[in-house]
Write a protein that binds this DNA or RNA. Structure first.
Length: 824
RNA sequence: GCCCUGGUGGCGGAAUCGGUAGACGCGUCGGACUUAAAAUCCGGUUGGAGUUAAAUCCAGUGCCAGUUCAAGUCUGGCCCAGGGCACCA
């Protein structure tokens, strides 16, 4: 074995051997229990960044650990390869997005292999390849048949920069999630997936996800936004119309003083009197022009105009005016709001501004308020509410809604904020939506035997203001599958999140050309046992995937109802306290790290300083420290190689120093195993590697010549160290294993066991406290009884001195650990 | 405003059950080896008091209370930071 550690040399060597021997292939048929470890697949943007390195290293260590513990592990990788950057790059360089994507995939694949990741590449999935998007299209058609995919004219989010519409989930603070451009409203006919059908079950099943962090579950619950309330209907005085409102506060119904409809409310024109028409039209035109940001800004002063018409409150017979104001949202509830200024802060602000009246109907009996200065929104007791006076407001919600139900002017209603998922994109580089439009037959799904609908190659990427796909001469014109007459293809492609909503299923049966996946295979491998990825997908990808899973289950394509059993959301990789980004110039190139230190150092370091879920601050000194540590490990092995024998036999009665060493190894096995099993605390795992290495050095430093017993202990310690480190330092340990004469691969070895009796020191340190403060520490035999421990503590010189002249009130003995003497 | 997460040395962070606070590392200081440097090895490193040196003592896990023989850990009330949601009726 060489004296010095040359990572680049041994890493290249082993990567080649592993690839040739196909060691990471996962068989479908195995007696072992299955384990599915998955990283969120990357967008092939060009090069790996440190966030990828962290993500894939975490999952790789988990996969290897599980494999060593007797599982048949599925650990695949693929490419989320449709999307705008490829198209933008194509426009810029006049190339084809496919070429750009293929080149990036090739480069990044090379990098992944350099990192020593244990992927089964035979299961690779690439979403932009026809053998994959054929099945994305097929799944879309199944959703269409089930009524879960539909087309409608709607106000949609439009990003001018990207030249396409966006899903609600992709609008962050009124801006595009990708380019930060301000999002506008447009009215377009677009394809939607009916995720709202699953709102309730998506919310309910969050409880089943015990392996998910509370933060992600809360974010999803908030996004789904369930609320319980009532629909109340109000008759219009001036005509026959009715205005229904959704409210969570039916208890305040006697306090209504006006009613607001959204500027886009469907009946608004009929609700406007001729005298008010002009003002209302102007107001609506302004609202239309406003961006999402302007409109949703909470510090904006509320505005509105009266419509001139009135409604009757069926509970009081009172007549109140109708207004339109943009604080009412057409997409939520009924698009109309009953306004109770005394008990709602928004209504209060609006009423103040326009001098609308205010009526108090809920009071805190202890501390009544007239609501002149602010709305009273806390619980209370009803007043000015006829037969409901004196009732608690929670009880009144039910009673009042019931009265509306009985009277035929209302109903109980559960409302969700979740909207349907807009999946149309006016872009080229995506899976074409497989439908055609026929003048005679209308919307026609493409027959399944005609899939995939291939992306055309004859497109002009230099066009502005429309999707490049529309420039194809061969794509658009087709024949109707129904009547055979001329028809036009849908030119919209699917949101890439559709592709990524099922890729983890495809890995179970990646080469199937008859189906997206065979049912028995998907049921065998799924759900994913451990999913690892960034928190930025807390809503988007994870919610869509949950929806897909449930929809596909209801179609009978699979038998589970949640895709990801355990979710680890890894923290960001920072440099100097802020997120690595090209614009800040604080990125670290993985290639440079591989070249200068090797992949094992990169893997060790990225796991070392922070627990996986927390942000990780990259430091050059830290990398250096990990590199030095691996050198130290290497020297420990190489300098002792001559004394290490793989077939050592440990004698049963060891000398004290050897017994202590033996115990330290068992303590390390136990600690490391538990740290990995318990939330993958790799940072403490690595601390324990260091402790063990330090201990072996210490032990070795005290010996000049080794006898047989010493050699056996040394062999046990070092071989165990190699096994324990093998999931992290994958190349170094493999090389060492072979240099020491090991057969096969270290990565096929069984994970070491520990003996509970040996995984602790041979004696205990008894902590002696007086009044809860540590005063002495005594080495003691662990077999001592409580009484003996007590006597031992009392016999301490220190204790005698400090208790002199005082009364011992009480003595607490914690077996094997501590004695606390309480004195006065 | 609502929700989630977190707050421990100069820094990253340890600390199954309430039982030795600060593991391990980074940084730093000192020493060994060397003509010298690098590399490597050994040792110190929460703050304060104390001492030639030690022993030793006191304080200490965001703040204030509480429970307990014993609190970083449990309870109540706050403060701060990060993230998410937000005119959702």
């Amino acid at each position: 074995m060489k004296d010095a550690y040359f990572p680049q040399e041994i890493e290249k060597k082993w990567q080649k051997i592993w690839e040739e021997k196909d060691v990471f292939k996962t068989p479908d048929d195995s007696d072992k229990p299955k384990y599915y470890a998955l990283s969120m697949f990357p967008y092939p943007s060009g090069k790996l960044h440190m966030g990828h390195v962290r993500n894939y290293t975490i999952t790789d260590v988990i996969a290897r650990f599980k494999k060593m513990n007797g599982f048949n592990v599925l650990h695949p990788m693929g490419w989320d390869s449709f999307g705008l950057p490829a198209e933008n790059a194509a426009m810029k360089h006049g190339a084809n997005p496919e070429t750009w994507t293929d080149e990036n995939i090739a480069y990044m694949t090379k990098q992944l292999k350099m990192l020593g990741l244990s992927y089964d590449w035979d299961r690779e999935v690439t979403t932009c390849k026809p053998d994959y998007y054929k099945w994305t299209q097929w799944l879309f058609l199944q959703l269409y048949k089930k009524g879960l995919a539909y087309k409608k004219e709607a106000a949609v989010n439009w990003c001018e920069e990207c030249g396409t519409v966006l899903a609600n989930e992709q609008v962050i603070d009124g801006k595009c999630w990708r380019c930060d451009h301000v999002v506008e409203k447009k009215y377009l006919s677009q394809w939607f997936l009916k995720i709202t059908d699953y709102a309730e079950v998506l919310l309910e099943d969050l409880d089943k996800l015990t392996g998910w962090g509370e933060n992600v579950k809360t974010m999803q619950a908030n996004w789904i936004g369930k609320s319980q309330g009532a629909i109340l209907k109000f008759k219009v005085v001036e005509n026959e119309l009715e205005v229904p409102v959704y409210t969570t506060r039916p208890d305040t119904v006697h306090g209504i003083t006006y009613l607001v409809v959204a500027p886009e409310y469907k009946d608004i024109e009929e609700l406007t009197t001729p005298e008010n028409k002009e003002a209302v039209e102007t107001y609506r035109a302004n609202a239309r022009k406003m961006t999402e940001i302007e409109r949703l800004s909470t510090d904006r002063v509320k505005t509105g105009v009266p419509l001139g018409t009135h409604c009757i409150n069926p509970f009081t017979g009172e007549k109140f005016p109708l207004w339109t104001a943009d604080y009412a949202l057409v997409e939520y509830g009924t698009g109309a709001v009953m306004a109770v200024p005394a008990h709602d802060t928004r209504d209060f602000d609006f009423a103040k501004k326009y001098n609308l009246p205010l009526k108090v109907v809920i009071q805190n009996p202890e501390n009544p308020s007239d609501c002149k200065n602010e709305a009273y929104t806390e619980p209370g007791v009803l007043i000015n509410s006829n037969e409901f006076d004196g009732m608690g407001n929670e009880e009144a919600k039910k009673a009042i809604t019931q009265k509306a139900v009985d009277g035929g002017f209302g109903e109980f209603k559960t409302q969700y904020r979740l909207r349907d998922w807009l999946v149309s994109r006016q872009r080229y580089w995506g899976a074409p939506i497989p439908v055609v439009y026929c003048d005679k037959c209308g919307i026609q799904p493409v027959p399944e035997d005609q899939l995939p609908v291939l992306l055309p190659k004859d497109v002009d990427f230099s066009v502005v203001g429309k999707s490049p796909i529309t420039t194809s001469k061969t794509f658009v014109n087709t024949t109707c599958p129904c009547c055979g007459g001329p028809a036009k293809r849908e030119t919209d492609t699917m949101d890439t999140f559709v592709c990524s909503s099922w890729y983890y299923m495809r890995y179970s049966d990646a080469k199937n050309d008859k189906m997206p996946f065979a049912k028995d295979k998907v049921n065998k491998w799924l759900p994913v046992d451990q999913y690892v990825g960034g928190i930025e997908h807390a809503i988007l990808h994870l919610l869509y995937s949950r929806f897909f899973t449930k929809a596909l289950r209801d179609m009978g394509l699979l038998d589970f109802d949640e895709p990801f059993k355990n979710l680890l959301t890894q923290g960001m990789v920072l440099k100097d306290g802020s997120k690595m980004s090209k614009s800040k110039g604080n990125t670290v190139d993985p290639d440079e790290i591989f070249e200068n230190y090797g992949a094992d150092t990169a893997r060790l370091f990225i796991l070392s300083d922070s627990p996986p879920a927390r942000d990780f601050d990259w430091s050059d000194a830290g990398v250096e420290g990990c590199y030095k540590f691996l050198n130290r490990v290497w020297r420990l092995i190489s300098s002792n190689a001559g004394d290490i024998n793989l077939s050592y036999t440990l004698p049963s009665n060891l000398r004290k120093d050897n017994d202590d060493m033996l115990r330290l190894v068992h303590i390390a096995i136990k600690g490391i195993t538990n740290d990995i099993s318990n939330d993958f605390q790799f940072n403490t795992v690595i601390s324990k590697y260091r402790e063990l290495v330090n201990a072996i050095y210490d032990w070795r430093g005290k010996k000049s010549n080794l006898d047989d017993e010493d050699k056996a202990i040394l062999s046990f310690a070092i071989i165990t160290l190699i096994k324990l480190m093998s999931p992290v330092a994958v190349h170094l340990t493999e090389e060492a294993w072979h240099e020491l004469g090991g057969d096969g691969s270290i990565h096929d070895i069984k994970w070491p066991d520990w003996n509970e009796n040996l995984a602790k020191a041979s004696s205990i340190t008894l902590v002696v406290q007086i009044n809860g403060k540590v005063k002495d520490k005594i080495e003691a035999d662990e077999a001592l009884t409580e009484e003996e421990l007590k006597q031992l503590a009392l016999s301490s010189e220190k204790v005698k001195e400090l208790t002199e002249g005082k009364t011992i009130v009480k003595t607490i003995v914690v077996p094997k650990k501590l004695v606390n003497i309480v004195v006065k």
